[in-house]
Amino acid sequence: MKFNPEQNLATLRQKSPLVHNITNFVVMNFTANALLAIGASPVMAHAVEEVADMVSIAGALVVNIGTLSPVWVEGMKLAMKKASELGKPIILDPVGAGATPYRNQVLSELLDITPPTIIRGNASEILALAGIRIQTKGVDSTANSTDSLEAAKALSNRYGCVVSVSGAIDVIVDGEKIAYAENGVALMTRVTGMGCSASAIAGAFASIESDAFKAAISAAVTMGICGEIAFQKAQLPGSFQIAFLDTLSEITPEKLSELAKISYTS
C-alpha cells in the first residue's frame, strides 16, 4: 500500500468538519485551537442533556478520558451510543489506561457500548487496554510504541478498529496492516495536550476519510511533520506550543507529501 495524506489535508480544509470532543479540562483550549488551525471546527460538549444532539450534527466523535467524573462518563456513553447508531466515526483516547482501577472500569464500560473506529494512545495505554500488566506513570508512557505492536494488533482484531500508537515512531495497525510514521520531535512529549490533539485531529481526518487506517496515518504524519517544522522555530516548550499551532495552520498538502516518512508492512 502506498498512501500520502496530502489529499486528505486538502479535503479537510475544504469541508471543515465539525468534530465533537468530550475531552479533559487540561487540554480543551489547546485541542480546540489545534482543530481550528488544521481547518476543522471544534465543539467541546459533555452535558448529558445535549451530547446526542451534538453528535447528530458532527462529523466525528472524540472521547478522551483524561479527567473523569461520573456525569462526564454518562455523557461519553450516551454520545458513543448515538454515534454508533448514526454510523459516525468514534475516536477513543484511553488517557492513563492502567493507572487506576476506575479508568480501567470506565474503558471497559465504554468499549462494551460500541467498538470505536480508532483507538489512539501511547504505548503504555495500549498495552494496558489490551490487558497487559505494565507499570504506568500517570498519563505518560513508560514503554516504546514498537513494544506495543502485538497489543495493538490484538486490540485491532478484538474490536475491528484501527489502533494508532504514538511514540518516537508512530505505529498504526489495522488488523494485519501496519504503518510506521517516523515524523516528529522529542519536545512534543514535553507539551501537555499533544497526544490529545492528535486524537482530535484523527477525528477531523476520520470525518472526511472513510478508510480509518488512512485517516489515522494522516493524523499521525500531520502531527509529526508540524512538530518538526515548529521545532525549527522554537526549542522551548512554551514557544513551541505556539509555533506548533501556527505550523498546523501553515502546513500545505505539498509540504506534507514532501516530508512524510511512512513505511508499511503486512
Rank of each mutant, 00 (worst) to 15 (best):
K2P: 03
N8Y: 12
L9V: 01
L12R: 08
R13Y: 12
Q14H: 04
S16V: 07
H20N: 07
N21L: 07
N21W: 07
F30A: 00
T31L: 15
N33D: 15
A34K: 01
A34C: 10
L36D: 14
M44G: 04
A45I: 14
A45N: 13
A47N: 09
E49S: 09
E49V: 06
E49N: 11
E50W: 11
V51M: 09
V51K: 03
V55Q: 03
G59S: 02
L61N: 03
V63K: 08
S69H: 11
S69L: 06
P70Q: 10
V71S: 13
V73F: 11
G75H: 09
M80I: 10
M80H: 10
A83M: 10
G87N: 01
I90S: 01
L92S: 05
P94A: 07
A99N: 05
T100P: 00
Q105M: 00
S108L: 06
S108P: 01
L110N: 05
D112F: 07
P116L: 05
T117G: 12
I119Q: 09
N122M: 11
N122L: 11
N122G: 07
A123C: 09
A128K: 11
L129D: 06
A130L: 03
G131E: 15
R133C: 15
I134M: 15
I134S: 11
K137N: 15
S141W: 13
D147P: 03
K153Q: 12
Y159T: 12
G160Q: 08
V162M: 10
V162C: 10
V163R: 02
S164F: 10
G167T: 00
I169D: 10
I169F: 06
E176M: 03
I178V: 08
Y180T: 01
T192N: 12
C196S: 09
S197W: 08
S197H: 05
A198T: 08
A198L: 14
A200K: 04
A202Y: 05
A204D: 03
E209L: 00
D211T: 04
A215H: 08
A219S: 11
G224N: 08
K233V: 08
P237D: 14
S239L: 15
I242G: 07
A243W: 06
L245E: 13
D246Y: 15
S249D: 15
S249I: 05
I251E: 07
I251W: 06
E254V: 14
L256H: 04
S257Q: 15
S257Y: 15
L259T: 05
A260W: 01
S263W: 08
Y264S: 08
S266L: 14
